[in-house]
Computed example of a mutant assay.
Amino acid sequence: MSEYPQASGPVDAVAPTELAEQLRTGEPVSVLDVRNRADAEAWPLSGAAVTTVQIPYYRFVEADVTDAVDDLAREVREALDEPVLVVCGRGESSAYVAELLEAEGLAAANLDEGMRGWARVSHTVEIETDSATVVQYQRPSSGCLSYLVVSGDEALVVDPLRAFTDRYVAAARDHGVELVAAVDTHVHADHVSGVRDLRAATDADVLLPAGARERGLSFDARLVGAGDTIEVGEVALDAVALPGHTTEMLGYRLGGLLFAGDTVFLESVARPDLEAGDEGAPDAARRLHATLSALDDDRLIAPAHFSDAARPNDAGAYVARMGDLRGRLHALSLAPDEFIDFVLADMPPRPANYEEIIAVNLGRESAAADESFELELGPNNCAATRAADAD
């Protein structure tokens, strides 16, 4: 039996995929978040056209008991345009609240499956290249980006999410190709990697940076170093060292495109403290500055993350020329010492459960699929948000 009070009747439900389409098109969305304040502030349902009010669901329970729901409905109506989308963690307490509001004549709907349903949403966009088909997978709940590269009769995935394993497999099947490799640019701290699940599902090779061994890698994988080449179909990806966010970070060049991992984003640069810690962060930031300074202006950057501040291109893909990023990110114009001070001045909270996620991704700890999904719920926080100063 649910721990939440039950709604007295059905209420309109908005599928997470429908919400994603609304946000992509810029349609205004009014959100009533009935989670507790800490959860609502740590992981908001956000977007450029989203207006949110947070009122915890227990206040609605109390109001229902005391016949005071009309007061809360008035508070919501004064703060938000209708219709109002009610949001919680699993879509249960929010269904109850939406029903109460509907009974007071306020147009309300429930986000089906709540934020956990939102975390399962992905959207795909093709990136135009001369040599291969590249599909960008976007996860709006956490801003994670991964990539399917298709050439000839083969495909590989860069930075796969475990939660989306079946989607990569289905996409390769739809393209009529064999998925031959699953590649991580680095040991991720914000989501559980899908490389081993893809190997189990397709017999694909698992490719990881050689430096992952020094970080404690404890499962079999093909180790890749800077200068190595990965062949897929009729093209080759060249591995490039990109230290800074982590010591082992590798990027992969495909013609003029660079899969840059967590090095630079459209609205920020990587945070340097997740591996190095507070004491080692200045040195890591200095390495990151050198890495960024060496990137060619003409290189098309395909990052591993995006945020609400990022703006996709006309096709909807989160990619940008490095020269354009230099023109709009203040951090990229700074000398090394200034860059270090700027990036470290106001770091966001570390990703939730990041140490456990790293341990899982290294194979030092295990987690079932449902457990790994719970571990990564929330924002990614892999960027140094003080650097998110694009014009």
Rank of each mutant, 00 (worst) to 15 (best):
D296H: 09
L208G: 12
P351F: 07
G143Q: 05
A13I: 01
V169E: 07
L145I: 10
L300G: 05
M322S: 11
E356M: 10
A390I: 10
A294K: 12
E376G: 02
G244K: 12
V84Q: 03
V319N: 10
E275D: 12
P336K: 05
R299W: 06
A369D: 08
V187T: 14
R59F: 07
V11W: 13
D112F: 00
V360G: 14
R222A: 03
D324N: 04
D33R: 06
H175Y: 09
R199N: 15
R271A: 15
E338I: 07
D278A: 09
P44H: 04
D184K: 13
I357H: 06
L156P: 00
V150A: 01
E78A: 15
V235H: 02
P83D: 15
A182T: 04
L23Y: 07
T263H: 08
V34P: 07
V134T: 08
E18V: 05
V269K: 08
T185K: 03
L106R: 01
E126S: 02
N110S: 04
L198P: 07
A290G: 15
P83A: 15
H289I: 03
G327L: 07
I230H: 00
R328P: 07
R222L: 01
R364F: 03
T51H: 02
M322W: 08
G323W: 01
L161E: 09
N380I: 12
S8W: 05
D238A: 10
T17R: 12
G244E: 14
H186S: 12
D278C: 01
S193Y: 06
E231V: 14
A15N: 14
A212L: 07
L148H: 00
E376N: 02
L288A: 13
L72S: 11
L329Q: 12
V264I: 07
R199C: 12
V240Y: 13
R173S: 15
A42C: 06
D71L: 07
A369T: 03
D39G: 00
L198I: 07
D190F: 15
T202G: 11
L208I: 06
L242Q: 10
Q54S: 13
V240R: 15
R321K: 11
A383G: 11
G244T: 15
G152R: 15
V125D: 02
E154K: 02
D337Y: 13
D205T: 14
A345G: 15
G323C: 01
V69P: 06
P28L: 00
Q54Y: 03
R321L: 06
Y147F: 02
I357A: 04
E214S: 14
V157Y: 02
H289M: 08
E355M: 02
V343S: 02
S372T: 09
R222W: 01
T385R: 12
Y354M: 07
V87A: 04
E234F: 12
L223M: 11
G277D: 09
E355N: 00
L292K: 08
A331E: 01
T25E: 06
T133M: 13
T185N: 10
